[in-house]
Design a protein around this nucleic acid. Structure first.
Lengths: 342, 342
DNA sequence: GTGAAAGCGCTAACAT
DNA sequence: ATGTTAGCGCTTTCAC
């Protein structure tokens, strides 16, 4: 028989069995908490396990049982505050249920995703979680996964016309809350800076903004809409553009805090005071938002909770595959601080 | 023979072998690029692989070869900008070399770490990467890992007296650069806000600060040192405390940007102007630092590069275990913007 | 309640 | 160059 390669030999169930004076299958039963083991045998086996410092081999276990207790976690952008927070919540909850996450970060290069899926499939992950925005591009690999019935949950990632398991935040409602509040404060010329228009959340927030306008009998003015890419830089330039267009407005709803902060800088340079000349509400509730000057009013999202629920939904799907797909929508909360002038 | 459980049967090497008319071991040879295969056979096998859509089973492969191409990635705090960036770099580089990361985030609850290590060991990860600060607490599990000769690399995590493989940034030098620059600008009463004193990086930065003072013939004044916990809040309170102590100072070196931003808020409330009344240099170069008002001068750290090098070092250790431990120290770079008045 | 036998899908040593 | 044999460490029938 071949000896172990470069590594020292590890303790196996056989060793435990020998010491406990039982067959190694009985050891397996004890470890997996099977009912049909005599209490006395169980005790002896546990003792042997402890004595030898036996650690089960998860790889061998996976091969035999076709379960890895491993989840594929695919994200597009680790630096993104939303996704990071979601992942923290996800990992925590998964761990609690005995699962580990295998990480795949495409870092915005969504084209790498199929390869990640392929590789992660080779590792026989029990399911996938996608923390990434929807893409208009190629979704064939996702559809294939869906068709194969691989357990799969997403956040912020939708496929038109496909029933999916997704946990997300109600973006329309969040944007509605922000805009409606600005209107209540007396503003009727409200600009907005959006994220990349391909994102579903961006579209939803824009609709929320429009709907609030509409409900108040205000008309939607396309020239009051500028587009950013989530970065402070883009918020800065978007605000400059808005200002240059020469269309008057007294309030801004920015689709995230970082762009709001960039916009505030442009405003400062233009000599406009916040909130006196310009009321602002951002989105996300990043930690820094409390420390702008004045402190940024914003729409706070329960991000870790999204991750937690996504993990639970995924594990439920793995352990009970017949559970039908459903969407969970969490609610965001408007937090007024200094910039909205109230 | 037992049939597959709940899952549809997957294509195996045997199926490929049958179709290609060879033994399944030959298929293994082809897949692993072994030399001794006839070109024609190789071609036929590849064709069969493609035709059947065969995907190797990484689990089975791991069991047989005792290599998983999997790395345990343990971090203490996913929200921390430094660690997040390091992890991005690490994951990218690991992936390039064919490794996946299994995630373990203790979220500041360092006591969970031994359990993570235990579990990840059961999965037979090929090595560990620790992205977490040094702790004074219990390091026995880390020492045990070291003794067992498990490949292991850290960043910001040291064990006194143990030769370790670590990739880090030269904190002493970074702090020195910042402080020396403030001195050059004519300041001789320079306060500093530190992070948690148990962190090695905090100690090093404090020494760098002191050394710059010393080199300039300036005396170190303990009452000019305040302690924070990295959060903007803590920077805010630290600055308030500094101000209340009544010891005059005209410049601040903050050990990270977030605390610097908090401090700026306290300054604003106290009616002190930056940089006229108070010059400030932060640390990290977080994206937001460009968007404070005025823009924050800071010490930029090549974080992703740390992760990249750590991955390479770990993989090198795995594939060539005889490589002796060594430390790599990267250099940070002072970036002057608005707050240092120059 | 417990042991024996079979097999998960693959790699690697040994023949030929 | 290719096939044969023997595992890797575990779970899961199936007997008894």
């Amino acid at each position: 028989m071949t000896q172990r390669k470069n590594q020292r030999r590890r303790v196996t169930q056989r060793d435990v069995a020998r010491l406990a004076g039982v067959s190694y299958q009985t050891v397996s039963r004890v470890i997996n908490d099977h009912p049909d083991v005599a209490p006395e045998t169980r005790r002896r086996v546990w003792e042997a396990i402890k004595q030898l410092g036996y650690q089960p081999n998860a790889i061998a276990r996976s091969l035999a049982s076709d379960r890895t207790y491993t989840l594929g976690l695919i994200t597009s952008d680790f630096s993104d505050y939303f996704f990071t927070q979601v992942i923290i919540g996800f990992e925590k909850e998964a761990r609690k249920a005995g699962y580990f996450c295998m990480l795949g970060s495409t870092e915005r290069n969504l084209a790498d995703e199929p390869e990640y899926i392929r590789l992660l499939s080779q590792y026989h992950v029990d399911g996938f979680f996608f923390a990434r925005p929807s893409a208009e591009e190629d979704n064939r690999h996702l559809i294939a996964l869906l068709r194969e019935g691989i357990p799969l949950v997403t956040t912020a990632y939708y496929l038109p016309g496909e029933p999916m398991r997704v946990v997300d935040i109600d973006n329309l409602d969040g944007a509605y809350q922000a805009t409606a509040h600005l209107i209540e404060l007396g503003h009727n010329r409200i600009a907005t800076i959006t994220g990349p228009p391909t994102w579903k959340s961006v579209q939803d927030r824009l609709v929320g903004y429009q709907r609030a306008l509409q409900m108040a009998g205000l008309s939607f003015e396309p020239r009051l809409v500028a587009e950013g890419d989530w970065s402070p830089q883009s918020g800065y330039w978007a605000m400059r553009e808005l200002l240059e267009r020469g269309v008057a407005f007294t309030a801004l709803f920015a689709q995230n805090d970082r762009m709001a902060i960039g916009a505030m800088r442009a405003l400062r340079e233009a000599g406009r005071r916040v909130p006196d000349d310009m009321a602002i509400i951002g989105y996300d509730g990043i930690p820094m938002s409390e420390f702008t000057s004045p402190p940024l009013s914003t729409v706070v999202q329960p991000m870790q909770e999204v991750g937690r629920l996504a993990a639970r939904m995924l594990i439920e799907t793995i352990e009970e595959p017949s559970t039908p797909p459903r969407e969970i929508l969490l609610r965001a909360r408007l937090v007024c601080r200094g910039t909205c002038g109230h």
